[in-house]
Design a protein around this nucleic acid. Structure first.
Length: 574
DNA sequence: GCCGTTTTCGGCCCGACTGTTTTCAGTCG
């Protein structure tokens, strides 16, 4: 049973949690966290790298010791250090660290003095008023803990990016109406375009921060003000979304934007770089040792000062972007303007809402050169999928429309189900009449890793298979990805001349950033598609592009940036 | 635990806000 990178990462994260509660050296804890991040984001399987005899200690943040621990996990399936730590600590105690206002010190104290071992214990102690008596705790802290527990039931809550956007835009409009607000921008993971965000960070410049603060906390959708100072405030919206605001003077705008955009790991790496050269970076600017400000008005100014190119927010995760920016070798990320068409779209013939013609008109408005109609095949009954007869009728309709349209070519396609045995849900006689077939898994998610992988490889053996749609099957916050050997699938797709999809549906967004980057490094090209089920669905393209950018993808890595002629050649496996 | 054209030991990003405190530890991002 091969060990996956994520399992190793989780293992190190657990060690970090337990070390934290044990009061270990914070830098040792950070080392484990960094290693967890490095390993779980690695484009290649660590177990595989070991097999090839590669030196793991060459990975950033992995030294001799951690490399040895990875070997231990891969060989034995467990880590002795973690087992020992688990013995010393009650299971479930690390869940307490997720409760806002509880850090390692307080968790330790709660455990020691009140025998709190779980979220349930915590809730009970808070309800009985036993927490307020503890040194360093008080009534307010106790109430805050209780509120947090009742709000989240202990589960970390993240919002899909799109949902966060819908809640944030009206708030921005509201803030902009104030004459006191000059610049206003959303920073944080929202600006880095993570597919889900934990909270929203807003940055503003103003000469009277207090008034901006007051306006912010007075917003009608605010259900609770969690903190409010002179330049910084945190509120909870009615929907449960947490929003932070930070107000700085204009001269610090760039530094504050950089700081507030993160990621934390990126900031630490930059600050350390500056420190090594005798400078200090904080949210107000770059300073020398005499406290003189040397840069800070814009992000560009700061990166330039550090002798590197400006780094797009999507890349700021401390995964090699800093070295690339220093070497002036950052990728030229794919841009939504590079996109020449959409390769996964549904119509009213299956479970979509719009007609082919309306979709085509909208595609023309977008300046697209092509639009692939890919309704469902029959397998998923509820989608009213197309059987060969209906599909042939659709093909005819598309051909008629193509005769009428100027500048846009409608491609004949299908989203064909990959059946349990890896065969496709429609016969080759009809598939061969199409321009492309987008293959997808909509059932039998629970197969073993080996079976699932082989099932999909077998589907790709079919010469009519073009693009593997939503390749992990995950639904954010609802359904985890099914278990497959992604590396093997990507290798298989590349050999066979197939492509993978980046799905732009806000609750899918797979491939994720790490998998996009893995594909890029393996030389497998991707299609960024909307999977639109209605007219407005075509506008989701920008989300898929954002995900692709997080995965370092460039124009040449994406097939729907190709001119129609080249695209058709790429899709032709013959 | 990692790391190194100042270093193989001694550093490790930096500041705001809260609550419980009489000056600051803990948490957060």
């Amino acid at each position: 049973m091969p060990i996956h990178n994520k399992e190793i990462g989780d293992c190190f994260d657990q060690v970090a949690d337990l070390l934290e509660i044990g009061g270990a050296n914070p830098f040792r804890i950070r080392a484990y966290r960094q290693a967890a991040n490095t390993v779980s984001r690695l484009p290649r399987s660590v177990a595989e790298m070991l097999k090839q005899g590669e030196e793991l200690s060459e990975l950033p943040g992995i030294g001799k010791d951690l490399a040895g621990k990875i070997v231990e996990i891969v060989r034995s399936g467990k880590l002795q250090l973690l087992e020992d730590l688990k013995k010393k600590n009650p299971p479930g105690i690390t869940a307490l660290l997720q409760v806002p206002s509880l850090g390692p010190q307080r968790v330790k104290k709660l455990n020691k003095e009140l025998k709190v071992k779980s979220l349930a214990d915590l809730e009970k102690a808070a309800k009985e008023g036993r927490i307020r008596g503890l040194g360093g705790f008080g009534e307010k802290t106790e109430r805050r803990i209780l509120e947090a527990l009742q709000r989240t039931h202990g589960v970390e809550r993240r919002f899909r990016w799109m949902l966060a956007k819908q809640m944030t835009l009206p708030l921005l409009d509201y803030l902009r109406k104030s004459k006191r607000v000059k610049d206003l921008e959303v920073a944080g993971s929202y600006r880095r375009r993570k597919d889900t965000v934990g909270d929203v960070d807003i940055l503003a410049t103003s000469e009277s921060p207090q008034e901006v603060m007051d306006r912010f906390t007075g917003y009608e959708d605010v259900s609770k003000v969690l903190a409010q100072g002179e330049t910084k405030a945190t509120v909870l919206l009615r929907t449960g979304l947490q929003v932070d605001i930070r107000v700085v003077p204009e001269a610090s705008y760039g530094a504050a934007l950089l700081y507030f955009t993160g990621s934390k790991a990126h900031n630490i790496a930059l600050r350390k770089l500056a420190q090594d050269r005798g400078f200090k970076i904080n949210e107000y600017g770059v300073f020398d040792n005499k406290g003189r400000r040397l840069a800070g008005r814009s992000e560009e100014e700061i990166y330039r000062f550090l002798k590197m190119d400006w780094i797009p927010p999507e890349l700021r995760e401390d995964r090699g972007e800093i070295a690339a920016a220093q070497a002036k070798r950052l990728p030229r990320l794919v841009d939504w303007r590079d996109i020449r068409g959409d390769l996964h779209v549904h119509t009213e013939a299956s479970d979509g809402q719009a007609s082919i013609e309306t979709l085509a008109r909208r595609a023309q408005e977008k300046g697209y050169e092509f639009l692939a109609i890919t309704d469902h095949s029959p397998y998923v009954g509820i989608t009213h999928g197309l059987d060969p007869k209906r599909l042939r009728a659709q093909i005819k309709a598309i051909e008629r429309l193509n005769g009428k349209l100027r500048g846009l070519r409608i491609l004949k396609g299908i989203e064909v189900d990959i059946l349990e045995d890896g065969s496709l849900d429609l016969p080759n006689e009809v598939l061969k009449e199409l321009d492309l077939a987008v293959g997808a898994v909509h059932g039998h998610f629970q197969l073993t890793r080996k079976k699932q992988t082989e099932r999909i490889l077998r589907a790709m053996d079919n010469p009519h298979f073009s693009i593997f749609a939503h390749p992990t099957g995950r639904l954010l916050g609802e359904r985890p990805p099914y278990d497959v050997d992604m590396e093997r699938l990507m290798e298989g797709a590349k050999q066979r001349g197939c492509f993978f999809e980046v799905n732009s549906e806000p609750d899918r967004m797979d491939l994720d950033d790490a998998a996009c980057r893995m594909a890029k490094e393996m030389g497998l090209r991707l299609a960024i598609s909307t999977d639109a089920h209605a007219l407005d669905g075509l506008d989701l393209m920008e989300l898929g592009v954002a995900q692709a950018r997080r995965g370092w993808l460039e124009k040449n890595d994406v097939i729907n940036t190709l001119p129609l002629k080249d695209l058709l050649r790429a899709l032709d496996r013959g």
